[in-house]
Amino acid sequence: MSTFTELLEKRRSIYVLGTESKYSTQEISDRIGEVVKQVPSAFNSQTTRVVVLFDEANHAFWDHIYAVQKDILEGEIWDMMSGVMTGAKNGVGTVLFFEELDAVKKMPTNVVRQEAYKQNNNANAQYAVWLALAEMDLGATLQHFNVGYEQGFDKGTKALFDLPESYEMLAQMPFGSVEQEAGKKEHIETNVQTRVISTLS
């Protein structure tokens, strides 16, 4: 098992994915399920839901995303993002991240804070799953296609997989074997990003 810091460094955005894995689809989905179960959430609200897609379901999802986005994206953005979509089909699978809005509304606070906590809950799950995939030697990226509950942008996805109307899709994470390593990552200075204060002036 990796040390925590090594795992943080290992987790990168990997766009060129393959289908090789030493883990079965059952082992991968079980691991993801256990990780999401242990992720903290505001008021222990447990509002996050994930759907793990493999094989035909994974291909169908990215075909759907491609069909929608080809009428929206143009020029260089389309050239870049269409490659992400087609590349996602070449991987092992995809994790879809949702928030259960009925559960969100039950959090004992106001609507503004519910929205903030919802985003925090889901972000915690996204990062935890990404680290878990990295630990299993699987590369991944975090994508945000067809998100927008109020606008109905995620209705097609929910219809495709017969998911509840109360699910709001916030992100997708295609994953698979690492067929091309990520490039060098630049970091700002640590003392700029992290300040340490122990006394008051």
Rank of each mutant, 00 (worst) to 15 (best):
N121D: 15
G83F: 04
H144T: 11
T5Y: 10
S45R: 14
S13H: 01
R49W: 04
A103Q: 07
K185A: 13
E186Y: 13
L133E: 00
R31L: 10
L7P: 01
T5H: 10
E165H: 12
S201K: 15
G156H: 05
M81Y: 09
F54M: 03
L17H: 06
V147I: 15
Y117P: 03
P164Y: 07
Q69C: 11
Q151F: 10
N44C: 08
P108C: 07
E34R: 10
Q38L: 14
E6H: 12
E74A: 14
V104W: 04
L160G: 03
A182W: 07
R113Q: 14
Q172T: 00
W130V: 00
L133A: 06
D55R: 12
Y66D: 14
M173L: 13
K89M: 15
K185P: 05
W62A: 04
F61I: 05
H64K: 08
T199R: 11
M107N: 04
V192E: 15
D30K: 13
V92D: 02
T109Y: 13
G83P: 01
A88W: 05
K184F: 12
R195M: 04
L142P: 02
V104L: 10
Y15S: 11
R11N: 05
A116R: 11
R195Q: 14
T47I: 11
D137H: 13
V192I: 08
D30I: 00
F161V: 09
T194D: 03
E34H: 10
M1W: 07
D154C: 11
Q119L: 15
V129Y: 07
L101D: 05
V68F: 06
F4H: 02
A128S: 11
L138P: 05
A128T: 10
N90P: 00
H144G: 06
E115D: 11
V129F: 04
V52C: 10
I28H: 06
K106W: 09
M173G: 04
P164D: 03
V36P: 02
P108S: 08
T5I: 15
S82V: 07
T194S: 13
F98H: 01
G183R: 06
T190I: 07
N90D: 11
L142F: 11
D137K: 13
L138F: 01
E115N: 13
N90M: 14
M136P: 02
K89A: 12
T47A: 12
T157D: 01
D162F: 00
